[in-house]
Structure formats: structure tokens, C-alpha cells
Design a binder for these strands. Structure first.
Length: 683
DNA sequence: GGATTCCCAATTTTT
DNA sequence: TTGGGAATCC
């Protein structure tokens, strides 16, 4: 029986993949080149640990960076092992793992159980309020401060240490703000994303008993995208695995493109130093791209210094040359690319969904969208305003957060006068004064006897009506939350409020639909499903903040549409036909990176883009660029010049033979006819 | 619902 | 300088 299963899992693994799966006696680093089947290795290793080596699922933990990756992995392992066998297995993001530890150990950490989780926007508005007197709402400064605090937290530096280390006036002020922020966090029971890693790390560092408990729980740890870990995440990994060091990390230093967010690819070196017995296994066979594409990628990335060298090879055939489309201006570039796409699609009878257009910055999508729209080509753009930045979702989230934690002042402020309850700035200011004076949260201060002296009877009455009603709701939410959420929405008559405040009835309807989406997610998360256990309201709301919910809209995944996205967003994906646009000095590499002499990460970005392509890769650039109103001239990207020129087909248009041109003309004619027919049909 | 005006960004944003 | 989004007005 065991033998049979063994055979089943390994049938599709190559030798290095198999080595990576079977090596479980000590620390293991899998250097997984692009498209080398790293997810397959992780899935198979988990199956191997459980099925062959007798690990209990609850003792195996796998961490990823994104919810999407975690979800996919859960799904695939459930398919491999069966839902029942996979039960108890912990596959989550770093942040969700941290959140789980905090929820179980909140007493040891010294925080209350019903803390609120702040996302970036909440953090921003809190910092804005705290720094009003110095920064006067200056967005730039507040964001600088936010990044500084985030970096401090990621480097395990608390406010006291930051203060002690501060040299310049500005550093001192920032450290002081950090102190204020910490105080506010404690007073209101607020955690931010960085705390989800920081707090467990500090706890495990300082508390031996808890550390042993978790080391006993996590008997085998797998980490995906290891090159993206920051200092505190690496520290957490070390604390969880302990001296036994039973772990596998999978990563690729050539695909490290998040150093600007605190990722430390140097953690690969540290791993080598911290675990001398580290077993390094390289996955160098690529199952994705043609030989030419891979050769180009290898040659490009060789210009970067390397800790571990690896060379990808492919058995998929040499493939077509790489094309370079040059254009006079950006509009011309978009047109040429879209024309090329249309022609290629007709020639090869491909789906729109087989094409991706990748670019450095979001703003570059605009022209491509315009041209695609003009040609009536369906496209899908990833990114854009997220669901959670919509007002109605923010409102509802604030209500839900306040329901869990009445001391969440940010949520209170958002909610207290939405919809209008005659509780204006003057009332809030008085309430705020009292709260500060007595070190109470706003909600608690609303019950303070002194408030009657401060507020005119009418205002006091409106405020009291609200807090009384809401604390009743909050009590009821402890037992059976879902009816309370319905009561809440009806109680505030949110639907009417939406119709009053929306620019149009259609917009109000849209907003109401979003609200329903959120409540239906909430409902299903409270109930649980065949993969996830039922959650409490607290858990569910925090998962929302972590953007981790059960996706129920599979419908739009099936759409046949050209994919537009940034190079960053493309990591981990693959497409038969890829256009890498804006290949010009100043765009890729970006000017800021040129100025900061940080070309290597830009090169990795180009490398990520190139290795997304399976069959055909086309670059494009324009020599002219409009910026801040005037025109500047651009050189083709240095990365194009670094590529093997023999495999590059510059300006494919000009080198076309007349026959090819005739062919293309014919297909374009056919296309126009088809479009005409389609337009007629639509009419 | 549509028109107008004002303000902001112009590099990437896993949680 | 430009263009888009939000806010504001009719």
C-alpha cells in the first residue's frame, strides 16, 4: 500500500525534485529557478512527510506570503492527500500564522483578547491624527513615518530603542511619534500587520516555555518564497524550528523583487551561516519556457552577483527568436503591440487569455487599455482599487471592528456619525478631551459621568443613544454574531444612507451589492467549509483585514481576456505569449533605481518578466516619452543590450519580407471582416 | 444623473 | 503638463 502510494507521488518528479522531497533529516534549502516546479516539490514533500514518514498533519506547517499561494497549496494538498488526511495541516501566510500564535498567547504577550487589527489605511489615519501638530497632515511625511516605524518593527526595534538610537532631530521626532503610536496601540488594543510577526518573535525569544510549546507543535516547517523574508520573519522561522532545524525553505534569489519593502535576500547567506549542515538542492530544469527564452534569462541575470549560481535548462525545444518592437512614441508603441497581438492571435488561433502585457509601473497600463478598448479586445487588469478601499466596505468593517473591540477609537470615529446622528466635531472634540484626560477609549469616555457637564443635554442624548444601543449589540454579538450584523445594518438603515449619499441609484445599488458580498463572506466563514474550520467573528474580521477570505467568484477567472499587470504582480504566473513593454532606460530600469544605483533589482524584475513567457516573448519600447508636460527621449533599456543579440529580432516590422507582409495584410483583412460581422451581429 | 471644478500623482505594494 | 478621481453643484 505504502509502496503504491510512493510510486504515485513521485512519478512526476525529476531527480533533484525527488532529493528535495526526500531530504527531511535536517535544514534544507531548495533553490528553485523560475518554472522549476517548486510548488510541486512543496506539495509532494508535505505528502511524503505525512504518508511515508508518519508525521501527523498538525505537526506540519507551511508558510507563504500571499493568501492566494496558501489557498492554492491547501487546495492541491487536499487533492493529493484527500480532505480527511489533510485535516489539521497548517498552511497559511506568515501573517496568519503570527495571528494564530498571538490569539493563543495573548496573555503571555500582555494584550487583551479582543484586539483590533489595523490595515495600512487605519495606520495612516491614526498616525495622521497623532502627528497633527508637527506634520499638519502632510501625506509625504506621514508615509515616511509609517515606513520608518514599519522598518523598525521588522528589525525588532521597539520605540524605546529607536529613541535611544535616534541621532538627528528628525529621527528623534520620528522615534517620539513611534512612542506615541505604541501608547495608542496599547490603549486601544490595536495591532498592525508588522506586529503579527514582531509580537510572536519577541515572545518566543523571551519565553522558553512558550517557545518549546510551539517548537513541539511545528515539527516540520516549510517556507515558500524564502528570499522575500525580512529580519523578523527569519527570526521567527529560526525560533519555530529550534535546534532540531527540521525545515525546508524554497526560494530564488534571482526573483527577489521586494527589497524595497524590507525583504532581505541576504537571509539566504544567513541561512548558510546559521545552519552549517544546510543541504542546498538546486532545481535547474525549467518546465515552462522555450530554450531561447531561458537562454536570454540566464545571460541577463548573469550580470548580477550571485550567492549560489544556477543555470536553468529546458527540454522544450529552442523556440522562436525574441522580438523587439521599437516605436516613436508611447501611443505608437501600444498600437504596435496590440496589432502584433491581434495578428499573432489570428495566425495561431490562440485565446486572448494566452497573452500577457507586463510593465514596470501601473500608469503604463493606460495607453494599452485605450488601444485594446478601441480594438474591442477583452482585457483584464490586475490591481486597481481594491474591494476594501470602497467607502461602504470601510464603513461596515469599522462597524464590525467596533463590535469586537469597543475601544477601537478609529473605528468609533468612522462609525459614530455614519449615518448622521447629530454627533459632530464639537461633540467628538469634547469627548476626545475627556478620553485623553482620563486615559479612556472614546467609547468608555462616553459613559463617564463627567461628560454630562461637558456636553449640552441634546448632544449628550444623541451620543448616549448610540453607545447604549451599540454596547447592547456588541454584547449580543458574543453569542450569535450573524443576526446581530443584520440588526446592525437594519438599525442604521444603511441601505437608505447609501441611496442618500451615492452619486446615483446605480452606484448605491453597486455599493449595496458589495455590502452583501461582505456579509455573505462573513456568513460562510462563521459556518466554515470542508477545508476551513468555522471561525469566530473576531477571527473572520481579522481575516478580512488580512484580505484572506473564501473566494466565491470563480466566474471571472474563466474570462478569455488579455492580462495586463505589473512585473511585480506577474511573479509566480506564466503565459504562452508575453509582451514586456516599456523596455527603455528610465522606465526599466526605472530612473529612481538608476539614480540610487540599484540596477540589480531592476534586472531581477526584467528576469521575472522574461521567465513568465512559455513560447513567445516580445519586448517593446518607445524612444519618446511625454512626462510632466514635456517630451523626453529615451534609449532602449540596457537589459535589451545585455541579451544574446543572435536570438533577438529587432524591429520585426521592418525586417518583414514582402510575403510576410502580404500574409499579415490578409489576416488583418480577415480580422476586420470578422469584427465587422461581429459588430453587425451585436446590432 | 450629469456636468463642473478641484486636487493630486508621475515606481513597485505579498499582509 | 496631463489625466483621472473625488467632491460639489445643478
Amino acid at each position: 500500500m505504502k509502496f503504491r502510494f510512493n510510486w504515485l507521488i513521485f512519478v512526476r518528479l525529476n531527480i533533484s525534485q525527488q532529493q528535495a522531497v526526500e531530504y527531511i533529516s535536517g535544514p534544507c534549502l531548495v533553490l528553485a529557478g523560475a518554472g522549476s516546479g517548486k510548488t510541486r516539490v512543496i506539495i509532494n514533500k508535505i505528502a511524503y512527510l505525512i504518508q511515508v514518514k508518519g508525521y501527523q498533519p498538525k505537526h506540519v506547517v507551511a508558510v507563504t506570503f500571499t493568501n492566494k499561494a496558501a489557498r492554492e497549496m491547501k487546495e492541491r494538498i487536499a487533492q493529493t492527500l484527500g480532505r480527511k488526511e489533510a485535516r489539521g495541516l497548517k498552511i497559511s501566510t506568515f501573517h496568519t500564522l503570527g495571528l494564530d500564535i498571538i490569539r493563543k498567547e495573548y496573555k503571555q504577550i500582555g494584550i487583551k483578547s479582543n484586539f483590533s487589527l489595523f490595515d495600512d489605511n487605519d495606520q495612516f489615519s491614526l498616525l495622521k491624527a497623532l502627528t497633527e501638530q508637527w506634520f499638519d497632515g502632510d501625506k509625504d511625511l506621514i508615509n515616511q513615518l509609517r515606513h520608518t516605524i514599519s522598518n523598525w518593527k521588522n528589525d525588532l526595534v521597539d520605540a524605546t530603542i529607536a529613541m535611544a538610537r535616534a541621532q538627528t532631530k528628525k529621527e528623534q521626532l520620528f522615534a517620539h511619534c513611534y512612542q506615541l503610536y505604541e501608547q495608542q496601540q496599547k490603549a486601544c488594543g490595536i495591532l498592525d500587520f508588522d506586529d503579527l510577526i514582531l509580537l510572536p518573535t519577541l515572545l518566543l525569544q523571551s519565553n522558553e516555555q512558550v517557545r518549546e510549546k510551539w517548537q513541539n507543535r511545528v515539527r516540520y516547517l516549510l517556507v515558500d518564497e524564502y528570499q522575500d523574508t525580512n529580519t523578523s520573519q527569519y527570526e521567527l522561522i529560526k525560533l519555530l524550528v529550534g535546534y532540531k532545524a527540521k525545515f525546508t525553505v524554497v526560494g530564488d534569489d534571482d526573483q527577489s523583487i521586494y527589497s524595497w519593502r524590507g525583504a532581505r535576500p541576504q537571509n539566504l547567506v544567513l541561512l548558510n551561516q546559521d545552519f552549517p549542515s544546510l543541504n542546498v538542492i538546486k532545481l535547474e530544469q525549467n518546465y515552462r519556457s522555450s530554450g531561447r527564452i531561458l537562454k536570454a534569462a540566464n545571460i541577463l541575470i548573469e550580470n548580477n552577483p550571485h550567492i549560489f549560481t544556477k543555470t536553468l535548462h529546458s527540454e522544450l525545444g529552442y523556440g522562436e527568436p525574441l522580438n523587439v518592437i521599437s516605436a516613436n512614441n508611447e501611443e505608437d508603441e501600444a498600437e504596435k503591440v496590440v496589432n502584433d497581438l491581434i495578428g499573432h492571435r489570428f495566425a495561431t488561433n490562440s485565446r486572448y487569455g494566452d497573452y500577457a502585457i507586463l510593465y514596470r509601473g501601473n500608469h503604463q497600463s493606460r495607453l494599452f487599455e485605450k488601444i485594446l478598448m478601441q480594438n474591442r479586445i477583452p482585457y483584464k487588469i490586475s490591481g486597481g482599487t481594491s474591494f476594501f478601499s470602497r467607502i461602504e466596505i470601510k464603513d461596515l468593517m469599522a462597524y464590525l471592528r467596533l463590535l469586537i473591540n469597543l475601544d477601537d477609537d478609529n473605528a468609533f470615529i468612522r462609525v459614530v456619525n455614519t449615518p448622521k446622528r447629530e454627533i459632530g466635531p464639537a461633540t467628538l472634540q469634547k469627548l476626545g478631551q475627556l478620553a485623553e484626560q482620563k486615559s479612556l477609549s472614546l467609547f468608555k469616555a462616553a459613559f463617564d459621568v463627567q461628560l454630562t457637564e461637558l456636553l449640552p443635554p441634546k448632544r449628550f442624548e444623541s451620543l448616549h443613544q448610540f453607545v447604549n444601543w451599540f454596547s447592547q449589540l456588541s454584547d449580543n454579538a458574543q453569542h450569535d454574531p450573524m443576526p446581530v450584523v443584520d440588526q446592525l445594518l437594519h438599525g442604521i438603515d444603511y441601505q437608505s444612507w447609501l441611496y442618500e449619499t451615492s452619486p446615483s441609484p446605480a452606484a448605491a445599488q453597486m455599493r449595496m451589492k458589495n455590502v452583501e458580498q461582505l456579509t455573505s463572506w462573513l456568513d460562510s466563514m462563521l459556518k466554515g467549509d470542508d477545508i476551513d474550520e468555522p471561525m469566530t467573528l473576531e477571527q473572520a474580521v481579522m481575516r478580512f483585514t488580512l484580505r484572506d477570505m473564501l473566494e466565491r467568484n470563480e466566474s471571472d477567472e474563466e474570462e478569455d481576456a488579455v492580462q495586463l499587470m505589473t512585473l511585480h504582480a506577474s511573479k509566480g504566473l506564466e503565459f504562452p505569449y508575453v509582451y514586456l513593454v516599456g523596455m527603455a532606460e528610465g522606465l526599466l530600469p526605472h530612473q529612481a533605481s538608476i539614480d540610487e544605483d540599484n540596477i540589480e533589482e531592476e534586472r531581477r524584475l526584467a528576469y521575472v518578466g522574461i521567465t513568465r513567457a512559455q513560447q513567445v516573448l516580445t519586448f517593446s519600447y518607445s524612444t519618446e516619452r511625454k512626462q510632466y508636460g514635456d517630451v523626453s527621449y529615451l534609449e532602449p533599456s540596457r537589459f535589451l543590450l545585455e541579451l544574446p543579440q543572435d536570438d533577438l529580432n529587432w524591429n520585426s516590422k521592418k525586417q518583414q519580407t514582402s510575403e510576410q507582409r502580404l500574409e499579415q495584410g490578409k489576416s488583418r483583412l480577415a480580422m476586420i471582416k470578422a469584427q465587422l460581422a461581429k459588430a453587425k451581429a451585436e446590432l
